[in-house]
Simulated assay, not measured.
Amino acid sequence: MEWSSCSDPRLLMTSHGYTDEGLRHPDGMANRSIEKMRKSPAANGISVAEVAMRNGR
């Protein structure tokens, strides 16, 4: 869909973050390690969707 064919286009963003370190790892917060620290950013993300009205809908 092209921006020029839409009325008032917008972006909708949603965060998919899960930041409970105690639940993310089998041994919880015990034995902190570099491997655990590297795993944390991979558990976060976002989705972006373009939404707009077309023909009044």
Rank of each mutant, 00 (worst) to 15 (best):
R10F: 11
R10H: 13
R10I: 06
L11R: 12
L12Y: 02
L12E: 06
L12V: 13
L12M: 10
L12S: 13
M13I: 15
M13C: 11
M13K: 08
T14I: 08
T14Y: 08
S15R: 13
H16I: 07
H16K: 11
H16A: 12
G17S: 11
G17M: 03
Y18G: 02
Y18D: 08
T19S: 04
T19G: 05
T19V: 07
T19W: 10
D20F: 02
D20C: 05
G22M: 02
G22H: 02
L23A: 06
R24W: 00
R24G: 03
P26E: 02
D27L: 01
G28T: 03
G28V: 03
G28C: 01
G28K: 02
M29F: 13
M29R: 11
A30T: 13
N31Y: 13
N31E: 14
N31K: 13
R32L: 05
R32C: 01
S33Q: 05
I34L: 08
I34F: 06
E35S: 15
E35I: 06
K36H: 06
K36L: 04
K36P: 00
M37S: 15
R38Y: 07
R38I: 05
K39I: 06
S40K: 07
S40M: 14
S40V: 09
S40F: 10
S40T: 07
P41L: 01
P41Q: 01
A42F: 05
A42N: 12
A42R: 09
A42K: 08
A43I: 04
A43H: 12
A43V: 07
A43L: 11
N44Q: 12
G45I: 04
I46H: 15
S47I: 05
S47C: 09
S47Q: 08
V48K: 07
V48T: 14
V48A: 15
A49W: 10
A49H: 14
A49Q: 09
A49K: 14
V51M: 07
V51S: 04
M53R: 04
M53H: 03
M53D: 12
